[in-house]
Amino acid sequence: MASNQVESIDLVDGQTVRQLSAAVMFAALTAVLAQFSIDLPGGVPFSFQPFAVFFAGLVLGPVWGGFSLTLYFLVGLAGAPVFSNAGAGVGYVLGPTGGFLIGFVVAAALIGFVAHRSLSPGPIEELSPISAAVALLAGLAVIYLAGVPWLASVNGLPLTRAASIMAPFVVGDLIKIGLTVGIVAGGNELLADWR
């Protein structure tokens, strides 16, 4: 006998669908850029992954920016090879660079909050270069504050030794912040359409 039970459909509202879709795309973008770098003179790789974290916070704001990086983290945890060097799984997260992954999640939320000074993001073209720079520097600080002690703990190193190992990478990340601020300050009419 056919069941007469009917459950009404509780549709997700349009704004949530839109933000979820954007969060998914930034999570996928973070995954793709984690595997992508260009070689600088001397063969030093210039990774693009931080750009995805920065823009997730700047474009999506604290809530959905943080959500987006949480998706990236969970997809990797679930086994998709989305972390650097096609890494995945709980073992990777608990490994030496796991702190940086957790730092990414917090950093995206913090960047969004500092840049927009609100839980809901405003248009990216209205961001001042100074507030963008401050937000990105705060995000970078969080990434290293989470990543370096974790690296020290997992590798059994003194904190100062771990910090000195990571110090050269800070230079590259500061350059990336400068480039991101340049994009924000440059008008970025391509990005202005979306909100």
Binding site: G14, V17, S21, A22, M25, V59, G186, L191, D193, W194
Partner: peptide, 28 residues
């Protein structure tokens, strides 16, 4: 490096946002 990385980043972010609009429409 500045031109290459900025161009690539902007284009990728724009494409991702365009895809997100398409996905939102498809989900709804």
């Amino acid at each position: 490096l500045r031109e290459r990385s900025q161009r690539l980043t902007v284009l990728m972010v724009v494409r991702a946002l365009r895809r997100s609009d398409q996905l939102a429409v498809a989900l709804q």
